[in-house]
Design a protein around this nucleic acid. Structure first.
Lengths: 348, 348
DNA sequence: CCAACTTAGTAAACGTGTTTAAAAAGTTAG
DNA sequence: CTAACTTTTTAAACACGTTTACTAAGTTGG
């Protein structure tokens, strides 16, 4: 009961997106290269590339050296053509980043938090940036709560955002595609994009914060949300006796901005084992502010008492804020890339 | 870097598959209905349907009553056009089922086990059935071991099958599409198909056998295999103290064909909690031979001490053998449906 | 029973990606 | 520096789903 998509505008959109994606990933390419890598005929690629160049989206960057015949023209994506905006809402502040398709930041900044103020304040901040950057073409919003289809679910401590259709709200008002995602899920997306993981990879991003631990989970290349958006609430994993993981972390006094204490190694190892047995991920990522190399080594060691070594995921650490932002950029970029060039051409 | 599929033969295959799928699901339809539900133009549907009728794949079943205008011709899928074969390898025997696109069994039977004999014996059994049913168009094989891309991985106790490219082996020799799947994964697919789960559903199928427990896991609509095909080896989930789930089941003497003992309720509840926290599935399915309604109620009760009630999955039981077979049928049917009508037309 | 209306199906024109043929632009050997 | 060869690009013919116009077949009211 799947719907084949054979309408011309859909095909055109797909081809445009493929060219954009390929050109941005590779940096530059010739028409022949695109034709080969995208499995589209040369004339089709030629038509699209020429049109996109005329629109200013692509730039010719000269001719290749000859490889035995006529020299090929080489094209690059024009990074000024479209910009993206990533906004992440935090307790104390709202952070934002304006960036181009190469991921280069054009402007980054911190604004007052809107979590207590409501959506109007956020809308003002976004509209200000859109006015300043008229080529803004997509928006990604990261929030510290559960999200499903652009709608905010449970968001502890910020009741006025609960149940809000954030994606629909901004798409209607801004007329650009909007993506909304939970912070941990964005981080796991960002890490996967950075690490250039295979499309079907499974990956877990762990965070042990002051507001209780959480995990972002990617399985078979997609973000796991679960039936009631409860996926990743690892605080409830049963441990020894009647304790759960959250309680185990707090016992013997848990961190306040400090590194994850070594006394919690066993609790984390049990968690790692549970993930291994259920998801069998390729990697589990820790925040580098919470776990260093030595600690990961100890956790890995301990995990081996629960699960055979050959099935244990690689335990790595990474910079959480960068991955979070990277994930939002990835989401924004995907939305940007799949836009139809001809749908809303109001400007000359 | 995705590859747009614009080649004519691919589009034709997609359209044919969509018509088959829709017609089989609905039982019958008119051209206009198909055109609407598949979002394809009437002339295209008309062309395909007429051709498929001429080939004998569809049958006209008369005219509808008029709904105010010319009466519409109604078409049904011919269940004799293609047959599927499901084979599942077990220790003591090989079971098989020949069935049509409606899932109706045409022949079912038991043959000697080939797990100790090797692949040659299996090939003979299959070829015999193919000779008897010349309209056999796809084969699904279920095995009690891990499978990835049609290749058998770890299969405890049957070393001669380990590492075998089962799918490639039979596709080459039989010239029909072949699917190979692990038994628990097939069961979860079968249950999902039967229960008509949403495409993005998460589902876990639990089994506590004599050879140790296992789980089939579906997340976001796809089967979870994991990085080293270790997903579902729930025997290793850490429990109280230094025990794991497998050991907890065996302590105090575990079942021999008997119902899951009530003394293991806490162990299962901890397992349920782990799944809830990581996958947050909609349902967890137990074999009805291992757990009855009353026991599920007790497990559910106990689980609530670990995880908030509103996030707990529904605990249900189902007939494992039926679900296993159903999953293989689903796989076989999918392969059948997506075949190109014109690729290998040797017969008149 | 015939005019007006409704729904199903067919035929021709159209749009768009592909295939095939030809031209353009370069390299290399003698 | 020209003949033979490569590779890139353009142009024309083709294939196939869609759109549009039209024909077929049925209903209903006067």
């Amino acid at each position: 009961m799947s719907e084949p998509r054979t309408d011309p505008s859909e095909i055109r959109r797909t081809i445009t997106a493929a060219i954009r994606s390929s050109l941005i990933a590779k940096g530059h390419a010739t028409k022949a290269e695109l034709s080969r890598s995208l499995s589209l005929s040369f004339p089709t690629i030629s038509k699209f590339v020429s049109l996109m160049e005329k629109e200013g989206e692509l730039r010719s960057i000269g001719l290749d050296d000859s490889s035995g015949g006529r020299r090929a023209g080489r094209y690059a994506y024009n990074p000024d053509f479209m910009l993206g905006l990533a906004v992440y809402l935090e307790k104390e502040e709202t952070r934002y980043s304006v960036f181009d398709c190469m991921g280069e930041a054009r402007e980054e900044g911190i604004a007052p938090s809107v979590l207590t103020e409501g959506i109007g304040a956020l809308q003002l901040q976004v509209e200000e940036l859109m006015a300043k950057y008229p080529r803004m073409r997509s928006l990604a919003i990261g929030v510290p709560g559960s999200v499903k289809n652009g709608k905010i679910g449970y968001i502890p401590g910020y009741g006025r955002y609960e149940g809000l259709e954030l994606k629909a709200y901004f798409e209607e008002r801004l007329q650009i595609p909007v993506r909304v995602e939970n912070d941990m899920n964005a981080a796991v997306l960002g890490f996967a994009a950075k690490a250039d993981e295979a499309e079907s990879a499974s990956l877990v991003y762990l965070y042990f914060g002051n507001n209780g631990p959480g995990a972002g989970i990617m399985a078979n290349g997609t973000i796991l949300r679960g039936n009631t958006s409860f996926s990743g609430e690892i605080s409830f994993v049963p441990m020894d006796g009647q304790r759960n993981f959250g309680q185990a972390l707090q016992e013997r006094g848990f961190l306040d901005g400090r590194t994850l204490d070594e006394v919690h190694v066993d609790a984390v190892a049990r968690l790692v084992a549970a993930f291994t047995v259920i998801l069998n991920p390729k990697r589990i990522v820790f925040c580098d502010s919470e776990a260093d190399e030595a600690l990961l080594e100890r956790i890995g060691q301990r995990s081996r008492s629960y699960v055979p070594l050959e099935h244990l995921p690689e335990l790595v650490h990474s910079h959480w804020p960068s991955d979070y932002l990277g994930g939002l950029k990835t989401l924004s970029l995907e939305a940007m890339i799949s836009q139809d060039l001809f749908s809303s051409r109001t400007e000359g």
